[in-house]
């Protein structure tokens, strides 16, 4: 994987929310530094209130950093012209509920200064891509289900064929089928060479599609690295087999004992990232300030 070009550079980024009188209220983000490289799918993880959305909004210029610097596509976050190459899917769909699907895409297309023919062509393509039922396309958005709203939200984020796609909780509110579609879409975007930054607390999604992840907790970066490496670089071995009888289990334990290994537990496999996530959160509570960063080999 090429890791040459950093699409997003975050340096020492902090955000403090203030109250009405200007007194610091919440420290939402504390000295975050990370790079996101061209062509990768990067996942930001963390429990609610960990600073994922804040980070994304800081990147988009919706919030202003208290400290630190952001470079995004080589420009400052405050520069509106960077938006030409960015697609953004907000956490919830904040689209105009009185427009229908065509009007919505047409409107956002105009904001990119696209010509009428371009807008029309692009709208049809995107609506097909996100699989929005044709009969729904002329209805106002206020009549849409959560899943449909999500689909049209993705379509508007991609209207300009962006180089960098920022997805805030892309799978929230989707049924399993929609979930699958969304993941396919992200992988497809990756295939097209686009950079994707997504944040989520649905770990299974992240595990399936992300190249690298960062786990935030309390506004601080706790874990960052390649997903496969994060999950394998541990002094444990997992044995996966077809269902064993109790006797067989006993035998296996015997064998392991013979090799001097300690049997920790034997059970059915779980989603590993979830373990990692829970462990990280647990650790952060017990040992504030601890950080694990496992970078790819070429990075160090």
């Amino acid at each position: 994987m090429s890791q040459s070009e950093a699409v997003i550079e975050i340096r020492n980024l902090s955000k403090v929310y203030r109250d009405f009188w200007g007194r610091p209220k919440v420290k939402a983000l504390n000295a975050l530094s990370l790079d996101i490289r061209k062509g990768e799918v990067f996942g930001l993880l963390g429990p609610n209130g960990s600073g994922k959305t804040t980070t994304m909004k800081l990147l988009l210029g919706l919030l202003f950093p208290t400290e630190g610097e952001i470079t995004i596509l080589g420009k400052s976050a405050a520069d509106v012209s960077k938006n030409e190459r960015i697609g953004y899917l907000p956490e919830e769909s904040y689209l105009y509920r009185f427009l229908n699907a065509y009007e919505t895409l047409d409107f956002y297309g105009r904001l990119f200064d696209m010509s009428a023919a371009e807008r029309k062509e692009r709208s049809e393509k995107l609506l097909d891509l996100v699989k929005l039922a044709p009969q729904a396309r002329r209805r106002q958005l206020k009549e849409y289900s959560k899943g449909m709203t999500r689909r049209i939200g993705v379509a508007q984020a991609l209207i300009n064929d962006p180089d960098l796609v920022m997805l805030d909780e892309p799978t929230s509110g989707l049924d399993p089928l929609g979930n699958r579609d969304m993941k396919d879409l992200i992988l497809d975007l990756k295939k097209q060479g686009k950079t994707v930054l997504m944040c989520s607390h649905l770990l299974a999604d992240v595990q399936d599609v992300c190249d690298r992840i960062a786990i935030l907790y309390g506004g601080e970066l706790k874990v960052m690295g390649r997903v496969d490496e994060l999950l394998k670089a541990q002094d444990e071995t997992q044995i996966l087999s077809s269902k064993l009888s109790d006797a067989a289990v006993k035998d296996v334990q015997e064998v392991l004992k013979k090799h001097g290994a300690n049997v920790l537990k034997i059970d059915h496999p779980t989603a590993n990232l979830e373990d990692l996530f829970l462990k990280t959160v647990q650790e952060s509570r017990e040992r504030p300030g601890h950080r694990t960063v496992i970078e790819g080999k070429s990075a160090s």
Partner: peptide, 15 residues
């Protein structure tokens, strides 16, 4: 209030 403006200001629309 509805944050619809987020979808506009994250496009190249100038203030």
């Amino acid at each position: 209030r509805l944050r619809s403006i987020h979808t506009i200001v994250t496009k190249p629309a100038r203030r």
